[in-house]
Amino acid sequence: MAVIKPRPNRRGRPARQRLHSRQARFGLLFVVPATLYVAIFQLGPVLYGLVLSFSQYSPLSRSGPQFIGLDNYRGLYGDPEFARAMAITGRYVLQVLPPTVVIALGLALLSNRAFRGVGLFRTAMYVPHVISLTAVSMIWLWIYSDQGLVNEVLAFFGMSEQRWLATESGALNAASAMRVWKALGSNMVLLLAGLQTVPKDLYEAARVDGANAWQQFRAVTLPGLRPMLTYVVAMDIIYLAQGFTEIFVLTQGGPYGSTTTVNYLIYTEAFQYNDMGSASAMAFVLFAFIAGLSIIAIRVGQGRRP
């Protein structure tokens, strides 16, 4: 509706059209600051990063980046460390996502009605999302420590304690459990908002047709919730695939690389081993991976084949 069509009558442009062009001018003026900022500090760095990914550059060296073509990408292709980090990142996303979404949906359904204390419940559930990932990782660092909460509870039930963050099989699961806990509340609040957009009369109609609770959920709730569910899943994928802070705090990528996510590898490659070109190439592969997963999620969400 923004399109201004040339009118055949050249004389006396109507007031309406003048108004429209004035609006357009103001519209343009209003978006200029945001557009400039995004162009310079979001899109600019993406292009710069793309150039870097074809270069060799060490922050320690006194000379600038040197163009080396596809070498960085070629290097990644046969790099077992990178392949492992990709697999770890994929596993991390896949084992955190389903429990988070399913439990959050269950809680949203349970709390989607007015009763005493429901506000308190929603607020309390949202608190882990507000507290920084750094801070909650610190708390869980203690929870998982040798004399931490988990081991004390196990000891109470007569089970033997474990070093949760020190075994290859356990460390990533420990981090995953923490992320489920952290993401639960925000997912729940978003799904709750989604539930409230489902038209009430549809339930009425379903009930008239004799649908039971489960059938109503399948026929009314789930389709109505689809857009929000898709959004929640896509956002979770984007966040989880970039896991870094919790790894930095809890395990530093270990034990022996079993929690080295791609983002953690990028950080060490760039700032520990000073290879910013290779790190940039990794970042773009991760970008493609995240985009691919999100597109699959969105297509499934829209009911199309992936």
Binding site: A34, T35, V38, F41, Q42, L43, G44, P45, V46, Y48, G49, L52, I238, A241, Q242, F244, V262, N263, I266, Y267, A270, M276, A279, S280, M282, A283, F284, L286, F287, I290, A291, S294
Partner: peptide
Amino acid sequence: ILVSTAAIPVSVTLIPLFLM
């Protein structure tokens, strides 16, 4: 275009922003 930039991973822009 503007909104889609929200999906760019932080690590893609991290090093360029550092150099910028």
